[in-house]
């Protein structure tokens, strides 16, 4: 290795933000960066044995996800799934899945750095999401383990509910958002939650455009 280099520093898209909360635990918003993230393309019956062997997870039904303590598998389309795993586990997961699926008509792509994960939890999480999303986010319309790819304002993201409404602390949602939309979405969520006392984050700006 080149001796002159400093040690590699890994920066998440929201490294400049800290977790924020509304009073009385009404709402918490934070980034969980660096989860391993792998896109799996292929028919579920083709993927199922390998996924089961490597992660212990079953393939999710349409618009649902399956999860255990270490991994979560999100349905994204009839032939597309997003696997989430432990931090720094992506290369190992890629290797294991590639070995299991060798010769099959599948695609395994590392997208660990493509997205980051925003975690929004608390009794006011649903109302906050409703300021940005056209989904039916009432508990009757969106429940535990459900998954949807949608827009949040002008940002794209995948939403999944990871903690039940009845659980202590209220429901928890995770949004997988692409790097370049993360700051916008973080700020929009704090903005939408002002009424609950959430401290408002302002988007990074100040780029000089005019010459």
């Amino acid at each position: 290795m080149n001796a002159t280099l400093t040690a590699p520093v890994r920066r998440s898209p929201l490294a400049h933000r800290s977790a924020v909360s509304a009073p009385d635990d009404l709402l918490h918003l934070s980034e969980r960066a660096f989860d391993a993230k792998i896109v799996l393309r292929g028919l579920p019956e083709v993927l199922a044995p390998a996924v089961g062997k490597v992660t212990g997870l079953a393939m999710p039904e349409a618009t649902r996800s399956t999860a255990n303590e270490t991994h979560r598998l999100l349905w994204q389309s009839p032939d597309e799934f997003l696997l989430l795993g432990p931090v720094d586990g992506e290369l190992e997961l890629m290797a294991a899945l590639t070995a299991e699926l060798d010769g099959q008509h599948v695609q395994i792509v590392n997208v660990t750095d493509y997205h980051t994960t925003l975690v929004l939890s608390g009794p006011k999480a649903r109302e906050t999401l409703m300021t940005l999303s056209t989904l039916d986010l009432h508990p009757r319309g969106f429940a535990l383990d459900q998954v949807a790819g949608t827009t949040f304002g002008h940002a794209l993201g995948w939403l999944v509910q990871t903690r039940d409404d009845e659980a202590e602390g209220g429901p928890s949602f995770e949004i997988l958002v692409r790097w370049s939309h993360a700051d916008y979405l973080f700020c929009e969520l704090t903005h939408g939650a002002r009424a609950f006392g959430m401290p408002e984050a302002r988007p990074v700006s100040g780029e000089k455009m005019e010459i």
């Binding site: 349409a62 618009t63 389309s77 009839p78 056209t134 989904l135 949807a148 790819g149 949608t150 827009t151």
Partner: peptide, 10 residues
């Protein structure tokens, strides 16, 4: 047909 009813904006 895959995701169910969604807003046109998607």
């Amino acid at each position: 047909p895959n995701c169910g009813p969604r807003d046109q904006s998607e």
